[in-house]
Write a protein that binds this DNA or RNA. Structure first.
Length: 556
RNA sequence: GCGCCCGUAGCUCAGUGGAUAGAGCAUCUGGCUUCGAACCAGAGGGCCGGGGGUUCGAAUCCCUCCGGGCGUACCA
């Protein structure tokens, strides 16, 4: 349960009751926002609703706040309500309620933190979707981590999530890929076939072609067409398999791999064009077919079917792809995670969704800004074209999947970021990744020790938990549902690592101040109670790390 | 030129229109005979890029300027 939502509910009741009794004037609909004050002396939660009602009620904010306080219904959750200038209402959470949450956490286990925000709506999250022409480049890692975490968080928030990779196996890039592959294959056979222009540079394709040649040496006499027909799909499968396995090292898995070529093969493309033609959004001009983006206030129309070869452009298949997402597969919402260099496509794709009869609000495009990589202060930008490729595989083996995820995750997507390889690699206290994991490992160690001594939390009386550090830890633990809610609502998983650090900080303070396993026989009840708290804390840590796609180590 | 994103502590970054703007790292001062010191307690460090506006209240919204990044194809 979201604590802030529960308090907001009480405040709404208080407002209603105050208005019913005439203590406050009517004011129409108000949004009751509950937040966590920065200063502890302002309580556990606070609301500025009185301040925002000043105008509507034409009353002094302090008076409104006082009436809210007076009319607050009794509850197990809130013990203290106070009013502070210039018109805040501050709330204190009862320790009874907090202690009761330990059992909530234990019962929920790895579902703790889940919310019902999504109410089962079907959401598709599409991310990475890099052309399968070679290994994943470091530049793609951020979108991968971001997309998968968004999916995690949406799932936790009660959405039915599908993770999808859009395989661009049909465009011009792929033709270049196949042409290069063929030339490399022939070269591997010792034939003097020049590289096409343009061609894919780099060792990857040469290696791949060589492998394919050694596996199928007899193929060389079959003629170009038949060679291509054999090696092209093999190369695609192999490249995709490699992409898939690298993503798996980052703990990313997909529910669906959607092939662009399927859009033409199943007739979806034709159906989409027909659909849009009927409503007048597709027109023919200069031998090409255009989508009338200008009908949606954009400056220029966009080609969907090129003149000459009559091949669909990327945007052309993208139209069909989104027709498929919304009109065939009927997703309630679609989230696409793109690199910021694609931002020029956002508005026209939104226009397309509108033209397809959908609500552009149902399509959210998250753009992640580029990452510049740094090594001890020296900035390097990697570029596929320049040939100095650094792959995701290299990055993960260098830095580790957990650190990678944590670092990429702790920035808002729309801010550029610097990734310091040296810093990320350093496994010291400089790196907050390990601080968080260490906290989990420490909890695991305590539970191990307890078990060795034959101690358990069995029959614990948690009402013995009255120490400030214990309650502080509990207050932090029960924030997780709110963090999930906020991350899902704004599609901003970067709140998770910050929460995780706060959680770890609070845990360490608890650890310093409250010894869990006591040697004194008389302390047994308290030991049991604290073990129960430790179990709950470990559960929340594990869940938080899981949402971030990180491991929760028992030992480090 | 036009469009989008960013500018917050020495560095890397958080910050839901709210109260005295925060964290990690770095720097400095303390703390291990007890469950893991990958830890804890504390200190210093800021015209929130500049200037206008909106309002009870702005780092946050609007305008404008400056600085940086990315786009601006019948490429994907």
């Amino acid at each position: 349960m979201k604590t802030s939502e529960a308090i907001a509910h009480l405040v709404r009741q208080a407002l209603e009751s105050a208005q019913k009794s005439g203590d406050l004037p009517p004011a129409g609909d108000v949004e009751v926002i509950i937040e966590k004050p920065k200063q502890a002396e302002h309580g556990d939660f606070s609301s500025s609703v009185a301040l925002s009602l000043t105008r509507a009620m034409s009353m002094a904010p302090m008076k409104i706040a006082e009436q809210i306080a007076v009319h607050m219904p009794a509850s197990r959750l809130v013990t203290g309500v106070s009013v502070a200038a210039p018109g805040f209402v501050n709330f204190t959470i009862s320790s009874d309620w907090l202690i009761g949450q330990i059992e909530e956490i234990m019962n929920a286990g790895q579902t703790y933190g889940n919310t019902a925000d999504g109410s089962g709506q079907r959401v598709q999250v599409e991310f990475v979707s890099v052309n399968p022409t070679g290994p994943l480049h470091v530049g793609h890692a951020r979108g991968a981590v971001l997309g998968s975490s968004i999916a995690n968080v949406l799932q936790a928030a009660g959405f039915e999530v599908q993770r999808e990779y859009y395989v661009n196996d049909a465009g011009a890039q792929m033709r270049v890929f196949y042409d290069t592959l063929y030339a490399r294959f022939m070269q591997a056979a010792g034939q003097d076939v020049p590289l096409p222009d343009p061609a894919y540079p780099g060792e990857y394709l040469a290696d791949l072609a060589r492998d394919l040649f050694h596996e199928n040496p007899g193929l060389i006499d079959a003629g170009e067409e038949s060679i291509r027909a054999t090696i092209s799909p093999l190369a695609l499968d192999r490249t995709l398999a490699e992409i898939r396995s690298v993503l798996e090292t980052l703990r990313i898995q997909y529910d669906n791999w959607f092939y662009e070529s399927a859009l033409t093969e199943t007739g979806t493309l034709a159906k989409t064009l027909e659909f849009l033609e009927k409503s007048g959004y597709i027109v023919e001009r200069d031998g090409a077919r255009w989508f009338r983006t200008t009908a949606f206030g954009e400056e220029e129309d966009d080609v969907v079917i090129r003149s000459g070869d009559q091949v669909p452009t990327y945007f052309g298949t993208d139209l069909a792809y989104h027709y498929d997402k919304f009109l065939i597969r009927h997703f309630d919402r679609v989230v696409n995670v793109w690199g910021a260099d694609h931002h020029g496509h956002v508005s026209r794709l939104k226009a397309a969704v509108t033209a397809l009869g959908g609500d552009p609000e149902d399509l959210t495009i998250i753009l992640n800004q580029i990452v510049s990589f740094k090594n001890e202060g020296e900035t390097v930008r990697f570029s596929k074209r320049k040939g100095n490729i650094v792959t995701v595989e290299e990055l993960v083996s260098e830095v580790g999947a957990d650190a990678c995820r944590f670092i990429f995750l702790s920035r808002t997507p729309n801010a550029q970021m610097e990734f310091d390889l040296a810093l990320a690699t350093r496994q010291s206290s400089e790196n907050p990744v390990y601080y968080v994991q260490y906290a989990h490992a420490r909890l695991a160690a305590i539970l191990r020790n307890a078990e060795e001594q034959g101690l358990s939390s069995e029959g614990a009386d948690v009402s013995l938990l009255v120490h400030g550090a214990e309650l502080e830890l509990l207050r932090r633990l029960v924030e997780l549902p709110d963090v999930v809610h906020r991350s899902a609502r704004n599609l901003e998983p970067h709140h998770l690592p910050y929460y995780a650090m706060e959680l770890a900080k609070t845990l360490q303070r608890f650890y310093e101040q409250c010894r869990v396993i006591s040697d004194e026989p008389g302390d047994l009840p308290l030991t049991k109670a604290r073990l129960r708290l430790v179990e709950a804390a470990k559960t929340v840590f594990a869940r938080t790390l899981d949402l971030m796609g990180m491991t929760a180590p028992e030992r480090m």
